[in-house]
Amino acid sequence: MTDTIRSHGAPARGPSAAAAVTTGSANALMRLTDPPMRAVQRLIGALRMPYVFLLPNLVFFGLFVFLPIGINIVFSVTGGTALFPSERPYVGAEHYARLLDCGSYLEAASCREDLFWRGVGNTLTFTVFQMVAMVLFSLVTALVLNRPIRGRGFFRAVYFFPVLLSPVVVALIWKWILQRDGLLNAVLTTAGGEKILFFVDPGWAMFWAVFVSVWAHMGFYTLILLAGLQAIPRDVYEAAEMDGTRPWRVFHRITLPLLWPNLLVVLVLVLIRSVQVFDEVFVLTGGGPGTATMMVVQYIYTTAFANQVQNFGLAGAASVLLGAVLFVLTLIQLFLTRRRAS
């Protein structure tokens, strides 16, 4: 594969050729691939064939996940601006020390790497607000959609379709609405209000960052919750009705406990994605005004790529710290999913 790629001067030509091959009939493909695979099977035996099937994926995982994790750790303990680990001098825990060197962890300005801590602070703010808003809105929407309303399929689609949109598209849509002479300000002034410069005010910028994320992703969580709601057997409600249970109590004592596993999964998923948030917010606010909406991932990205001095060491150390947080969160998620399954 590597050879075919390298032999193409214009990189774009390779893929289109590959696409042409795959559009050929499945039979032709079978005739092409079966003899070599059959030969492999004869050579190593049928019992070892699973290794052959696993190989491509493992090569990809190895090259683009496991190897990079190792390199990242090397980056985080080496300095300089070189990309190749062998050309980087060992600096020990210097990057970690620099990231964690703070007068007070509650005051970003007191930190040596204050941008990182601003990112951490912003990400935390974003995460807290987004989790509350996301869970609240997707729960309410799921509850409403679970009633047998006319046109439920349509409404479900309405809430869901932004999930499929590119974060860049989502951000541009809202940027266009929120700009100085945009639709929202037009509505505000018509209603007798004043124009608001949403992206100049730090509070508003964070508000809209959260709002746009909820707008874009709530459909996904609504679906998960809706699936959970629909899995609650109808006769449970009918039994409650026979017992003369009041509606609020039904929600509190039946719906919520039975939905709880799904709700937990949603909570953790939102948490994991919030901690990694970047795309929408970056395009919407550019991290501004100032650093008011700059998230941790943006800090890592800028430190490694966008700054004039590319500091892979610092970015690597920040990545390792973020990775540790995500690792714990994912373990929790896996634990919860497993418990839901069993």
Partner: peptide, 30 residues
């Protein structure tokens, strides 16, 4: 496989960039 589930590309940007560079793919669609 489960392990890779926990490693979003977000946190290994620079090293993946290095691997891709080493493989000669930078600025190609590959």
């Amino acid at each position: 496989v489960i392990g890779t589930l926990m490693i979003p590309i977000t946190i290994i940007l620079a090293p993946v960039y290095l691997v891709v560079t080493k493989l000669g793919f930078v600025d190609s669609l590959w």
